Simulated scan of single mutants.
Amino acid sequence: MHGPASTGWLLVALCAATGAYCLVRMRSEVEEQRRAAGGEALMGFGMAAMAVPAAVFTPPDWGWSAYAAVFGAAGLHALWAARASAHHLHHLVGAGAMVYMSLVMGAAPGHGHGGSGLPPLTGVLLLYFAGYVLATGARLVPAAATAGGTGATGWGDRPELARACRLSMAMAMVAMLLAM
């Protein structure tokens, strides 16, 4: 990722922490939560790896293709899982965005978009994730206000924490798209 190193390290920390929490969520007793958490953990750790500042580590040329292949496979899995739950459509868009960023970064290492202005697909993805941030943030406020009376719930079964993780990753996606 290009941009200030401090921003990159903050994104690495945020995405890695989100990925780690999603691994905890995979221990949920609710099957749908476990399935969604797996995709979100992959996304969190993948975003953390891509956000490492370019001054510290630049993946080899084949690394960007590997990112694209992994997230392409995750996108196919999300497409298949979307038959059962519409939430997986968001995973599909996220995986597609990661494939797109991998291809752009691999095609122009060190230059991002090459200074040619904002490509239309980047703009569409920015609008989608910015809208997702606003919608998820609005849903998070009521969930946090009513979460106190849920009883003894495990860390993997807290819907407000799952929403906060999704919000964190969507904000990180906006930052990564802007920094490309």
Rank of each mutant, 00 (worst) to 15 (best):
M1Y: 08
S6H: 13
T7M: 14
T7V: 05
G8Q: 04
W9R: 08
V12Y: 05
A13K: 03
A13F: 11
L14R: 07
C15R: 12
A16R: 04
G19C: 05
A20N: 10
Y21M: 14
L23F: 07
L23N: 09
V24K: 13
R25C: 15
R25A: 14
R25L: 13
R25S: 13
R27P: 04
S28G: 08
E29N: 10
V30R: 13
R34N: 09
R34Y: 07
A36E: 12
A36V: 04
G38M: 15
E40G: 09
L42N: 11
M43V: 10
G44F: 00
F45H: 10
G46Y: 06
G46F: 08
M47P: 08
A48Y: 02
M50H: 08
M50R: 11
A51T: 06
A55E: 14
D61L: 14
G63E: 05
G63T: 08
G63Y: 11
W64M: 02
A66Y: 06
A66N: 04
A66F: 05
A68Q: 00
A69L: 00
A69G: 01
F71E: 06
A73K: 07
A73T: 10
A73D: 12
A74S: 14
L76Q: 02
L76G: 12
A78S: 04
A78L: 12
L79C: 13
W80P: 05
W80S: 10
A82M: 13
A82H: 04
A82V: 03
A82P: 06
H90A: 14
G96A: 11
G96P: 10
G96E: 15
M98T: 11
Y100T: 12
M101P: 07
V104I: 01
V104L: 13
M105W: 05
A108N: 15
P109C: 09
G110T: 11
G112E: 15
G112R: 11
G114M: 05
G115D: 12
S116M: 10
G117W: 10
L121Q: 05
T122P: 04
T122Y: 06
V124T: 14
L125H: 04
L125Q: 09
Y128W: 14
F129S: 00
F129G: 04
F129M: 02
G131D: 02
V133R: 01
V133P: 09
L134H: 01
L134K: 00
A135Q: 07
V141Y: 01
V141L: 03
V141G: 03
V141M: 02
A143D: 06
G151A: 03
G154S: 09
G154I: 12
L161C: 02
C165F: 02
C165S: 15
R166H: 12
R166I: 09
M169F: 04
M173Q: 04
M173K: 04
M173D: 08
V174T: 06
A175Y: 01
A175F: 04
L177K: 08
L177E: 12
A179E: 11
